[in-house]
Simulated assay, not measured.
Amino acid sequence: MKVAGFTFIRNAVKNDYSIVEAICSILPICDEFVVAVGYSEDGTRKLIEDIDSPKIKIIDTVWEESLREGGAVFAVETNKAFSNISKDADWAFYIQGDECVHENDLPEIVKEMQDNLHDPRVEGLLFKYNHFYGSYDYTAESRRWYRREIRIVRRNLDVSSYRDAQGFRINGRKINVKLIDAYINHYGWVRPPHGLVKKGQNFETFYNPDAVVQEVPVTASFDYGNADVLKHFKGTHPAVMQNRIAKANWKFSIDPTKAKNNDSFRIKLLLKVYALTGIRVGEYKNYKIIK
């Protein structure tokens, strides 16, 4: 069984992406790893080179600046990386620059790839998500966020990244996947308040062609109201994240019990149903789960 990792990145230093940690978290179970490195202003390419692994293959790209709506450029860059994976790879493991996999989950992931290698019904593997929020000590949930997503697909299928690179499709249709007992840790919301404001501005430029980036003072505050539920994280973080976590130098003082109290009655009811049953009514699913 041959496994290829793949990802894309640009201006990782400038935008404080944990891309090295992301790559290194799954590199041990990959036979090769394709990184599409967009033209950057901050030494991102050297950052990837310094991982110093013979498994890594860097593809230099130039982002299409005209793709400024709906985050489409993210899917284009993802597809560039995928297309450069060796043809003899069985599985392609995708990870984004603010994601990470715990080393304790790697054996289960390998087992699932092996167990499903010869089952053509399984076109991809679906992961659960931990969305860390504001701090490495808290996770958040929101009906607007995905709680599961495809991160492993078969290499030999006509797979393409979908919309803003959240998931994948095969010739436009949803992929048949198996839900596995492994997590993607998403750290995109773990930044100091002014960092989250800057991230929001930067992201907006890839979704709205009229967006304007403004200077953000270090004292800027951030509205954390887009989370429905905030929970204290009681688990452990991946080993590759420990140095970054140790350098965190801001305080996150949100009270989880008071983090969200202005939802409509409908949203409160839906959250209650989810808490009691685990069913998220009306959830958008970019995949089809097979048993």
Rank of each mutant, 00 (worst) to 15 (best):
K2C: 13
A4V: 05
A4Q: 04
F6Y: 09
I9C: 07
R10T: 12
R10E: 12
R10S: 13
N15C: 12
N15P: 08
D16I: 07
D16Y: 12
S18D: 09
I19Q: 01
A22S: 14
C24T: 10
S25P: 10
I26H: 06
I26Y: 08
D31H: 00
D31K: 02
V34K: 07
V34L: 09
V34I: 15
V34H: 05
V35P: 05
V37T: 02
Y39A: 14
Y39H: 14
S40I: 11
S40P: 05
E41H: 13
T44H: 01
K46Q: 15
K46W: 11
D50V: 09
D50K: 10
D50I: 08
I51D: 06
I51Q: 06
D52V: 00
K55T: 01
K57V: 03
I58F: 07
V62G: 08
V62D: 14
L67I: 06
G70K: 05
F74T: 08
F74E: 11
E77C: 13
E77P: 09
N84A: 11
N84V: 05
I85K: 04
S86I: 00
S86N: 06
D90E: 12
I95Y: 04
Q96R: 11
E103F: 01
D105W: 04
P107N: 09
E108M: 13
E108K: 15
I109S: 02
I109W: 06
V110D: 12
K111Y: 05
E112K: 13
L117W: 04
D119W: 00
R121T: 14
V122Q: 00
Y129C: 15
H131V: 11
H131C: 09
D137E: 08
A140V: 07
E141C: 06
R143E: 12
R144N: 09
I150D: 00
R151C: 00
R154M: 14
N156H: 15
V159P: 10
S161F: 03
R163I: 11
D164N: 07
A165Q: 01
R169H: 07
N171C: 05
G172A: 01
R173Q: 14
R173F: 10
K174W: 10
K174Y: 12
D181I: 00
N185Q: 14
W189I: 04
R191H: 14
P193H: 00
K198Y: 08
K199Y: 13
Q201A: 01
Q201P: 06
F203Y: 13
E204T: 08
Y207F: 15
D210V: 09
A211K: 11
Q214E: 13
V216P: 04
P217V: 03
S221R: 11
F222W: 02
F222N: 01
Y224Q: 03
G225R: 08
A227D: 01
H232Q: 14
F233V: 09
K234H: 10
V240D: 03
M241N: 05
N243S: 14
R244C: 07
I245P: 02
A246R: 12
A246N: 05
W250C: 03
K251Q: 06
K251M: 04
S253V: 10
D255E: 03
P256W: 08
K260L: 02
D263A: 06
R266W: 08
L269D: 05
K272C: 13
A275N: 15
T277F: 01
G278M: 11
V281D: 02
G282A: 05
G282Y: 03
G282Q: 04
N286Y: 11
